[in-house]
Design a protein around this nucleic acid. Structure first.
Lengths: 189, 189
DNA sequence: TGAATAGTTGACCATTCGGTCCGCAATTAC
DNA sequence: GTAATTGCGGACCGAATGGTCAACTATTCA
């Protein structure tokens, strides 16, 4: 009956995400998005009602990608400390490579000058999911904290440290500082 | 010879800062800035060459204001732990009040989709100054770390935690998580 | 064959943007 | 008075914005 779509929506979404990630909401023009996806406006607007919807979809995709990776790392073998060491090591590696994109979710949190309630809610929910992943990882291996509260505090502290590391990376802080912060955060486990 | 200026540049700068703080660079229009300062374009452009200069000046002002406060708190009486407790308590209080502006410097770090090297450098320098303030506070009171490296690590970790707390606030994370993170970060001192 | 959808190109829209310019009233110092 | 400057208001500029529409080709399935 009708012609089939010739591209994968997921591929287009990857392009959309990378643009918003690097340039933020207002900083990304439709031209940029066309270039990054290899599609033109009409094809894009057939998938998404408007630019905001693209942004929200990009946020979702980032969360799905990034959290899957984090979950994989944190569910690996070894002690909780060694696994968080791997996770934080990844952040350091990005910083060392000069990857200054930072964490898209953090960027989004700071970006929402436009006071987009939907985006704020999405970021907030994502942060809580990440906290849950951290908590689960702490609960699954020694050293075990005595009570639930202590475990929750530790997970939250690791989350704050993780976000802080990514902000420091984005802010182009010296690698020395980033490494120091990661090292001390790990030691505290 | 000539008429005198009727307003304080500092007052205007406060207005400029508050707009950029809340709305980011791209999100703040000249109209917004006119409204916030109570001045019109011509008066503003007589002080600043362009919008970017206003943004950079606002960053400087934020740093001067905020770091002065932080330095005051961290130079107070008591142990290092108690002083950082006060500092982090302030962040929690802002979150509890529903102040979601976050840290202007963090926002700026994430905001720079426009790849403004000057702004990046300013943020980076500010972060390093803050790290220095933290380090100084740790060096000035017990518990003393054995070596300089340990003290540096601790300062960097506290900085990451501090930034993470502010991001969590901006991201509208539950107050419970913010309090947990602060509490665990303090305990690690 | 024919209806329906996908994709491309380019024109087009109103709006907003940062920034400039002009004119006018007020104020200051010589 | 006169020159110089400040502040205000509004007109104005070119450029870029997000988004729409029309025209055309290609592809699919009934």
């Amino acid at each position: 009956m009708a012609r089939l779509r010739e591209f994968e929506i997921g591929d287009a979404l990857d392009g959309v995400m990378s643009v918003f990630w690097r340039q933020g909401y207002e900083g990304a023009s439709m031209q940029d998005i066309e270039a990054a996806t290899g599609l033109n406006k009409q094809s894009l607007y057939r998938i998404f009602p408007d630019k905001r919807a693209m942004y929200l979809a990009a946020l979702e995709r980032y969360e799905a990608n990034e959290f899957a990776k984090a979950e994989e790392v944190l569910a690996g073998a070894g002690t909780a400390r060694s696994r968080f060491e791997t996770l934080f090591g990844g952040v350091i590696a990005l910083a060392a490579q000069g990857d200054r994109r930072g964490c898209f979710l953090c960027n989004a949190a700071a970006d929402q000058g436009q006071e987009d309630d939907e985006a704020t809610a999405a970021v907030s929910a994502a942060m809580q999911r990440l906290e849950k992943i951290f908590r689960k990882a702490l609960a699954a291996s020694p050293p075990y904290d005595r009570d639930r509260k202590a475990r929750e505090d530790r997970a939250a502290a690791l989350l704050a440290s993780y976000l802080g590391l990514r902000i420091l990376t984005k802010a182009d802080a010296p690698l020395r500082v980033i490494k120091s912060a990661a090292s001390a955060a790990i030691k505290a486990i």
